[in-house]
Design a protein around this nucleic acid. Structure first.
Lengths: 113, 113
DNA sequence: CATACCCATTGACAAACGTCTATCGATGCG
DNA sequence: CGCATCGATAGACGTTTGTCAATGGGTATG
């Protein structure tokens, strides 16, 4: 199998290791990717992106067929990743996308959902 | 705590559930996000993005402090997600980013790394 | 005060994940 | 042919993840 052309290489010799990105940037990106890499959380983000106002957590509990603690847990992960923020009004909790995201994170949020 | 303004809402009444994205698109996006949500795999993608030619798998094995099977396993996941493709030349395996990605996937790959 | 309601936290559990060692198939070389 | 090398696969093992039932803390209302 040789589906595409590959460079010549002497036996047993590997090219010098290409150096990767800055470790900090990698870790932060991975954190955000992990936060988004779940169907429920990805749709939560999508709903928040389309919402004109902060969304009550009870709306998410109603929208998905999961228990209330599970929804709360997912939203907590999004919050831990710095993607959303919460505000209480009486009994209710309202969530919205966090404004002023780092540019790289914002770019990621823009392309998904 | 009321960090930002929230809409008025009658007691016990939740707004109609906002409908999410198409399930297929969500699943595909989650697959790609999961493939990228690992430091090693994310850096592999970064190296492939910066490479001018297909890269020998042995270069990845040399670049990371993981065993050869672990590197092979990570690359296999990237391949299963349709992000990279492989070509053999004699003993060696060369990988490159898969051209002609779906636009949404391509956009994701562009913003990370 | 007592009750009902909303939501977060805890603890439990199965499934998925990342890593390793050991092994195997294939290719090249003496 | 016999042996070494590259890379993929299999099996094992500890950690992380997604889910639920149960509980707890706060807030409104009778």
């Amino acid at each position: 199998m040789k589906a595409f052309a590959v460079p010549d290489r002497a036996k047993g010799v590997c090219s010098p290791p290409p150096m990767p990105l800055s470790p900090g940037r990698v870790d932060r990106t991975v954190d955000v990717l992990k936060a988004l890499a779940d169907p429920t959380r990805l749709q939560m983000i999508g709903m928040l992106k389309r919402a004109q106002q902060p969304v009550c957590i009870c709306d998410f509990t109603a929208a998905f067929n999961f228990s209330q603690p599970t929804i709360s847990h997912h939203m907590s992960k999004l919050r831990a990743a710095g993607l959303v923020e919460v505000s209480r009004k009486g009994i209710w909790s309202y969530y919205r996308l966090r404004p002023q995201l780092e540019p790289a994170t914002r770019a990621l949020m823009d392309v998904v959902g």
